[in-house]
Structure formats: structure tokens, C-alpha cells
């Protein structure tokens, strides 16, 4: 094996190597880390991040970014909970519209899709930089969440709804199933479909993609819509796990999501990366969070450590891009 092949393999497996070293270190430092219950605990916790990070990966692959996922997550969770619990009252028509579990979940996902599509539309139609457009949506969605909930949590959503976030199916937590299915579909989309190839092409070279006949704007809107829908699913999982839609849910989730994408090897400049890399990144972030808690590290230091890990991942990404 020559030096170049060795280096290429090292880059390819950098996330897995980092995860292995992290797990090894935590196993030595804490006897509670390497247990089956803790492993399921970590997997359950990262399921939400995997959902939103999958959407974020698609966006970052097109050289975009979405800062609104945390707020969209909160709004969609709140809308699902609100509709399920209170329905909609139309006093002028003496009408009450009740929502079944299916209806409330669909409404939540449609809301997320709509907000995502709105992001995509603003970015493509008005050429607003994704950073700015989604930053605006971050505030809009958070404000709408406060309006919808009046600043109070919505609780008491029923056992069936709770099953999404807390149930087990065939010995595996339901959120892990849901995030697993999402990852599987996203892997198929990115690797086996025309849309997937377009996403990579746009991130690699947007101008060349346009010239080769790809409808760049349409692809971008689709990608942001998917990300919004996945954020909504994340919101439903969080709401179900807590049996409560919290108005401040999802705060700073966008950072964990971007961290998972970057640590997973997806280039912030687009065109390079993978969904499975992001899953590894999300697991690293989850394991890191879990390990720091088990080691009784102060939450303030946890933020500092996470910040440095993200910085390190970006530096490695830049270094790789430069060498490429």
C-alpha cells in the first residue's frame, strides 16, 4: 500500500477511527459506558439528531446550510401535539375539527415540508444566502411556536402517540427504527436515484450543473423540503418522548446537526460526503455527550469540548479539501 492509498483510506475511515478511539477511551474511564442499556440509551437519544442531520446532509451536499431545523422541529412538534390534543375550533361556523393520530402526524410533517419549501423558495427565487434565509426561518418558526403554544407546553398526548418516542419493536427502540428507515431511504436517494446525482453535482459545481441542464432551483427546493419534513419527524419524536410539546424544544439542535454532518466527513463547500458518514458523526456526538455525562463533566465544559470537536472536524475537512 503506497502512501497515497494509505492516506485516502485514513480519510475515508476517519469518523469510524475517531468513534472507535472515543468508545475505547470511555470504556476505560467509565464502567457504565459499555453496557447494553447505555448503548440503547445513546441510540435512542441520537435518533432525533440522525433524522434532522440526514436532511442537513442533503442540504450541505448542495453547498447550502439550514439553521432553522431546531425551530422547525419545535413548531412541528407543537402543531402535532396541539392538533392531537385540542383540534381546531371554528366558532363562526360552530365547527370543531378534530384530528386523529394519523392526521396530527401528517399535519406536523406537512408543516415542516412547507417551511422547508419556503426556505428553498427564498434561497432560489430571491438568491438569499442559505445562511440568512434559514436564520430568518429560525426566528419565524420559533415565534410561530410561541404563538401556537402561548408559551406553555402541550402535554397529555396519549399512550399511542408516546409509542413513537418511547416504545420498543422487536427489541429495538421505535425511534431507532424510524431513524434507521429514514437513513436507508436517504442512502438510496443519494446513491441510486437521479435526484441524488443532481444533489452531488450541484454541490460540486452549480454552474456546470445548470449548463448541463439540471433544474438547480427545483432540486434545491426539493432538498430543503425534505430537510423540513425530517425536522418535523424529529419534532414528533421529541414530543412523543417527552409526552409534551415544549415551546423551547430543539434549541441549538441545528448545531448538533451541523456537527454530525461535518464530523461525518461531508464538506461544507458541498459535493462531497455521505449519509452514512453523517450517521457516524451523529453517533460520535451522541457518544461524546453520553460519555461526558457519565464522567460527570460539567455541562458548561461539555459545550466547550463539543465546540472544539466541531472545530477540529472543520479543520480536517479544510485540510482534506486543500490536499484534494
Amino acid at each position: 500500500m503506497n502512501l497515497q492509498t494509505y492516506r485516502a483510506n485514513l480519510i475515508r475511515f476517519q469518523s469510524l477511527i475517531a468513534l472507535f478511539i472515543l468508545c475505547l477511551a470511555l470504556s476505560i474511564l467509565s464502567d457504565k459506558f459499555l453496557t447494553v442499556s447505555n448503548a440503547w440509551n445513546v441510540m435512542r437519544q441520537i435518533s432525533v439528531n440522525i433524522c434532522i442531520s440526514t436532511g442537513m446532509t442533503l442540504i450541505v451536499l448542495t453547498a447550502g446550510i439550514d439553521l432553522s431545523v431546531g425551530s422547525v422541529l419545535a413548531l412541528c412538534g407543537a402543531i402535532t401535539a396541539g392538533l392531537l390534543r385540542n383540534g381546531i375550533e371554528v366558532p363562526s361556523g360552530n365547527l370543531y375539527i378534530g384530528f386523529t393520530l394519523l392526521g396530527a402526524v401528517i399535519a406536523g410533517i406537512l408543516t415542516g415540508s412547507f417551511l422547508g419549501a419556503f426556505n428553498g423558495w427564498a434561497i432560489t427565487k430571491f438568491k438569499v444566502p442559505p445562511f440568512v434565509a434559514t436564520l430568518a426561518m429560525l426566528t419565524i418558526a420559533r415565534g410561530l411556536t410561541m404563538l401556537w403554544t402561548q408559551g406553555f407546553p402541550i402535554s397529555g398526548l396519549g399512550d399511542t402517540f408516546l409509542y413513537f418516542g418511547t416504545g420498543w419493536l422487536l427489541g429495538i427502540p421505535v425511534p431507532v427504527w424510524i431513524s434507521g428507515i429514514i437513513v436507508l431511504i436517504a442512502v438510496l436517494i443519494t446513491n441510486k436515484t437521479r435526484l441524488g446525482r443532481y444533489i452531488y453535482a450541484i454541490g460540486g459545481n452549480e454552474s456546470a450543473s445548470k449548463l448541463s441542464g439540471i433544474n438547480v432551483n427545483r432540486v434545491k427546493i426539493i432538498v430543503y423540503t425534505i430537510a423540513g419534513a425530517l425536522a418535523a419527524i424529529g419534532g414528533i419524536l421529541v414530543t412523543s418522548r417527552l409526552d409534551s410539546a415544549q415551546p423551547n424544544a430543539g434549541t441549538s439542535y441545528e448545531l448538533d446537526s451541523i456537527a454530525a454532518v461535518v464530523i461525518g466527513g461531508t464538506s461544507l463547500s458541498g459535493g462531497r460526503g455521505s449519509i452514512l458518514g453523517t450517521v457516524q458523526g451523529a453517533i460520535i456526538i451522541g457518544v461524546l455527550n453520553n460519555g461526558l455525562v457519565l464522567l460527570n463533566v460539567s455541562p458548561f465544559w461539555q459545550q466547550v469540548v463539543k465546540g472544539f470537536v466541531i472545530l477540529l472536524a472543520v479543520i480536517i475537512d479544510k485540510s482534506n479539501s486543500k490536499n484534494d
Binding site: 360552530n94 365547527l95 370543531y96 378534530g98 392526521g103 401528517i106
Partner: peptide
Amino acid sequence: VVAYNSVYFKKLDEV
């Protein structure tokens, strides 16, 4: 079919 299984309507004063 999805819509039929998603929402239901009642009179508000009865609710």
C-alpha cells in the same frame, strides 16, 4: 382515504 382517517368534524357547542 388518508384524509377520511385523519380528521373528523363535530359541532363546537357540543364539544
